[in-house]
Write a protein that binds this DNA or RNA. Structure first.
Length: 936
RNA sequence: GGGCGGUUAGCUCAGUUGGAAGAGCAUCGGCCUUACAAGCCGAGGGUCGCAGGUUCGAGCCCUGCACCGCCCACCA
């Protein structure tokens, strides 16, 4: 089956991505690029996608991360690997439930009234409608995932993995249930793990209230300080440091809790700092983690004074019931003040924990929850990193990863929401007996009225923690698992290193006995042009789809107006100034190339819409045009045996090989910016500006063998170039491949040495170029000399103000026979590139010509009537000034005794050589200047 | 309080074993040279954040400091 050429004609002077991207993607799907077939005999390369939330829309972070993954997958696929990229999405418990809750609110439906089952149904409906939106957007970017293996964390297969994992951990004592203090979100009414709580650096503005608690015997007061006065209603003790002389006599006495009237003991505990505040601490076990721990040490009662939604209740005095916690705070402060028990109020920055999702202020709440015992699991994960089974890139993350694992506390995995994996535990209503099982236990089936399944669901990260193998069918022993696990690479954002990466390693080792991935790559954080992290709340995000498809001003304004940041007006003015008519889409390739070109091992990258035009679009357009030239020229290729390769042919093939080697190495080390920079300069500087320009006359040569040689070289270079670039910019290279391959086939140009393609038809399946080791340093240096000669001529021409259509002639006086030979070989290169009518050798100094002094030769350019002594003097004086500076530098080094004694010999020799050359050059320049002065 | 990253040309950034600083954009001058004016040719522009140290030699290694960004941490 011959593939159809893309509908974008080569007559188009500019590349128009919108016209071809969808048809190219369809071509990949039809030809099997997006479905992996366990090809025997090939090594595997596997990536499992970090599953985006089903509430998600593509943002720049996804764009970057998935470009990285696709580039690597495509690279490995072309390089002969059985490359598998498994896509999928995450059910994202709390996030999704609250999004759907908002939709229900808008319909006037209260989800609590709607009930659990109906609400879950509505969430499924929502998921089925919008849940794969982001995967569609990834296709738009050209991601070559294996869509036939698309997974969702709540698929039956993955849900079974979750239940199995839970049961096994429970049976091994690594999961337990208990009444502990947990982070509580009063808005979503659920427990949260430590990692889901965020704090702002330096805290938030608040107060420290100093409250007097009267001693029960009436002998006085103790003063305590608190940032949360309303919690005093739940105080069950006052604590002081045992070594604090001020309070030793009251330890063991009681105080009367104001507003409540409860008698509570004064206890001594090391936790209390003598020097902080008054040295007295109120102990509120049910609402503070430390207080909770103190209460356990001292057997204090733990009084919960708040309801799930953050209103006061339960053990608080009745009159406060139903009051919001912050309203209650005011009331308590007022009442204390009225009683004369308020000793003072201090303004103070206080650390405030907020729920990552709802942003509401976290309460600590004492409740029954399920936990994963972390230390035994963490230990294995630390070892895997220490013994090199797993490598993190950039390597600085390894320490951060281990530190967290060493210090992490048990993981609270139960959530009091409805959307998620139901905890597979059943309780006997009467006896309280607990059964944990993968499926509903027989007893519960037999007597359903006696048993009740736990109402809670699991933290969404619990299922994510199994993702690398649950997607392959674990706990069954599947073919995919046998073949593709452990995966090769995880590419992700550093902010989920704890949430996700560490936990995958722990569960992977626990359940499969192997690390889930060999390498982890952390991509940088995406920032705006001002260096601020891109985020919805700042409104500074750039929508990748806008970059690809373009957007009107109104659309570009969208995120800014939605976020309403403080500097909204300024941002809008800026936007209108830069893009008054909106942004013209640059296509997926330009997006990808730009992202990778900025992706070094730094912690962040700064992006702007301009970048995509400056870097990506420009490059892609240049490639389009260069390829037009190539394909047009090869369309009528010469037949027969080619002539011997010209110097530039050997040079460009050497360059191709060294480029190939360094691009491969850059990909292997995840130095994406280096890979792109190498390709960029090879293509633009070497291929376009030198090679293509040089062969233009050869393409028109009457000598067919000469034409054939240039065409074969050009064919090889471009065939390899498209393949080298394909992982980065797949669409355009695939489109151009479709144009180029038939031309090469027709003219028998496929069998050139670098073109070992496995497939003539699909670039995505073609072989990634290999380094044929044709690069030679000597050859490259020789060509570089020719380039320097050409630049001297161009410079002279430019400073003399001679138009490029005026032909000049050049005489060269080589310093010795060696240089003469080299220049002789490259004479024609000099002629063509410097636009000379002639280039010849001479045996002596020439007069009345422009002179350029090189280390290897003197150049005499016949400017004829164009010679301008003044301009020549200025040019030579510039050169003289530079060479004199050099001489001073070299001399100072060589006169330095320590340098002469201690520097290695080759460095000393180099200095001596450089000095001699510079002195020679100075002499020549002085002489030239003297002669020029006579002319004046 | 601890840790990480950044500080290099007007702007955005490379510079991964220490041997006289690079790219793109912007600026200036010249070119419609038949793939590309979204292009080509040429030029100018940097005491590599500051202060010390190691070294014959430091953008690179060490120490301290400053500023920007990020992460972790139970001082009420």
């Amino acid at each position: 089956m011959a593939r159809k050429n893309s509908s974008l004609s080569l007559d188009q002077k500019h590349y128009i991505p919108a016209q071809i991207e969808s048809e190219i993607y369809a071509l990949w799907e039809e030809s099997g690029v997006t479905s992996t077939k366990r090809t025997a005999g090939r090594p595997t390369y596997t990536i499992v996608i970090p599953p985006p939330n089903i509430t998600g829309r593509l943002h720049m972070g996804h764009a970057l991360n998935n470009t990285v993954q696709d580039a690597l997958i495509r690279f490995k696929r072309m390089d002969g690997f059985d490359a598998l990229w498994i896509p999928g999405t995450d059910h994202a418990g709390i996030s999704t439930q609250s999004v759907v809750k908002k939709h229900l609110d808008a319909e006037g439906i209260n989800y609590l009234e709607l009930g659990r089952e109906k609400t879950i149904e509505r969430i499924w409906e929502w998921r089925n409608k919008y849940g794969d939106q982001i995967l569609t957007q990834l296709r738009r970017m050209g991601c070559s995932c294996d869509w036939s293996r698309t997974r969702f964390t709540m698929d039956e297969m993955l849900s079974r993995a979750v239940r199995t994992a839970f049961k096994r951990l429970y049976d091994e004592g690594l999961i337990y249930r208990g009444k502990y203090i947990v982070n509580w979100c009063p808005v979503d009414r659920t427990a949260l793990s430590d990692d889901e709580v965020i704090t702002t650096d330096g805290g938030e503005p608040g107060h420290l209230w100093h409250i007097k608690y009267p001693l029960s015997d009436g002998s006085g007061y103790v003063t305590v300080a608190t940032t949360r006065p309303e919690t005093m209603l739940g105080d069950t003790a006052i604590a002081v440091n045992p070594k604090d002389p001020r309070y030793q006599k009251i330890v063991g006495q009681t105080v009367t809790l104001p507003l409540v009237g409860r008698e509570i003991p004064v206890i001594a505990d090391d936790y209390v700092e003598k020097d902080f505040g008054s040295g007295c601490l109120k102990v509120t076990p049910a609402h503070d983690l430390n207080d909770f721990q103190i209460s356990r040490r001292h057997n204090l009662p733990q009084l919960n004074v708040m309801n799930e939604d953050g209103t006061m209740g339960e053990h608080a005095p009745k009159k406060y019931h139903g009051m919001d916690r912050f309203a209650c705070r005011e009331v308590v402060v007022e009442e204390l003040s009225a009683l004369g028990l308020l000793a003072g109020i201090e303004d103070r920055m206080t650390p405030i924990g907020r729920a990552q999702r709802s942003r509401s202020i976290i309460e600590y709440r004492l409740s029954d929850q399920w936990f994963v015992r972390m230390q035994p699991l963490a230990q294995q994960a630390i070892e895997a990193s220490e013994n090199g089974e797993i490598h993190l890139f950039p390597t600085r993350w390894e320490k951060i990863y281990r530190d967290w694992l060493m210090n992490t506390r048990d993981w609270c995995i139960s959530r009091q929401i409805w959307w998620g994996h139901r905890i597979p535990a059943w309780y006997h209503k009467a006896t309280g007996e607990i059964l944990v099982a993968e499926e509903t236990p027989a007893q519960a089936k037999l007597r359903p009225e006696e048993w009740e399944q736990d109402k809670d669901v699991l933290d969404t990260w619990f299922s994510s923690a199994l993702w690398p193998y649950s997607t392959m069918g674990w706990p069954d022993k599947t073919e995919d698992l046998a073949r593709y696990y452990p995966t090769s690479l995880l590419s992700t954002a550093k902010d989920i290193i704890y949430f996700w990466v560490a936990r995958m390693v722990m569960t992977g080792l626990q359940f499969t006995g192997r690390v889930p991935f060999r390498q982890v790559y952390f991509h940088p954080v995406i920032c705006d042009a001002q260096g601020e992290t891109m985020s919805k709340s700042r409104g500074n995000g750039i929508d990748p789809l806008h970059v690809i498809e373009g957007a009107g001003v109104a659309e570009l304004e969208g995120p800014i107006r939605e976020a309403r940041p403080e500097n909204m007006e300024q941002m809008l003015v800026e936007l209108h100034r830069s893009y008054p008519g909106g942004f013209k889409g640059v296509g997926a390739d330009a997006l990808r190339l730009t992202l990778l070109s900025l992706n070094s091992h730094a912690q962040q990258v700064q992006l702007s819409l301009q970048k995509f035009e400056e870097v990506g679009q420009k490059f892609v357009d240049k490639l389009w045009n260069a390829s037009r030239f190539v394909i047009q020229n090869l369309a009528e290729a010469a037949v027969g045996k080619p002539a011997a390769p010209a110097i530039e042919d050997l040079w460009i093939l050497g360059r191709l090989d060294s480029t190939t080697a360094s691009v491969r190495s850059a990909f292997d080390r995840f130095y994406f910016s280096e890979a792109v920079a190498t390709l960029y300069s090879f293509f633009w500087d070497d291929v376009c500006d030198w090679y293509v320009e040089l062969i233009k006359p050869r393409m028109k040569s009457p000598d067919a063998a000469e034409r054939r040689r240039a065409q074969e070289t050009l064919a090889e270079v471009f065939s390899a170039l498209l393949r080298l670039l394909h992982p980065v910019i797949p669409y355009i290279t695939e489109a151009l491949w479709g144009h180029l391959q038939p031309v090469l086939a027709r003219h028998d140009l496929l069998s050139t040495p670098g073109n070992t393609a496995q497939s003539d038809e699909i670039c995505a399946f073609a072989a990634y170029p290999v380094d044929l080791r044709r690069f030679s340093k000597t050859q490259d240096d020789e060509f570089e000399l020719l380039q320097r000669i050409v630049r001297e001529v161009r410079n002279t021409r430019s400073t003399a103000g001679i138009a490029s259509n005026v032909s000049l002639s050049l005489l060269i006086l080589p310093k010795n026979e060696k240089w003469r030979e080299i220049i002789e070989k490259g004479k024609s290169v000099i002629e063509r590139s410097a636009r000379l009518k002639s280039c010849a050798f001479c045996c002596e100094k020439q007069n009345k010509m422009a002179v350029c002094v090189l280390e290897e030769a003197d150049l005499f350019i016949n400017l004829a009537e164009h010679i301008d002594a003044g301009a020549e003097i200025r040019r030579n004086q510039t050169a003289l000034a530079k060479v004199e500076k050099d001489i001073v530098f070299h001399q100072s080094k060589l006169q330095n005794k320590s340098f002469m004694e201690k520097a290695p010999e080759h460095v000393r020799m180099e200095q001596e050589h450089n000095l001699a050359e510079a002195e020679l050059k100075r002499a020549k320049l002085l002489q030239t200047l003297a002669e020029l002065n006579q002319l004046l």
